[in-house]
């Protein structure tokens, strides 16, 4: 293990802002993309159903 304590881990040798901002933003983008895609597919399925019921 590289870290003596949790606080040392979160501090990242003084570069906490840069490191955690980078990783946080990446996580945020991934989560956002997955949620947006879930919405899009459920919407697409809903519309398809609507169309097929109208026939």
């Amino acid at each position: 293990m590289q870290w003596e304590s949790w606080s040392a881990f979160f501090n990242m040798g003084g570069y906490a802002f840069y490191v955690w901002f980078s990783f946080g933003l990446t996580a945020l983008c991934v989560v956002w993309e997955v949620i947006a895609l879930r919405k899009r597919s459920s919407e697409a399925l809903r519309l398809t159903r609507l169309l097929s019921q109208n026939d």
Partner: peptide
């Protein structure tokens, strides 16, 4: 994974009027 999910969305959106999509949606209900 994400591209495959998105391509499925695109297929549904563009092939909405195709017979197989309608069958599929009925089946999924």
């Amino acid at each position: 994974a994400v591209a495959l999910i998105r391509v499925r969305c695109i297929i549904l959106e563009r092939e909405r009027n195709a017979g197989w999509v309608k069958e599929l949606s009925v089946k999924e209900i």
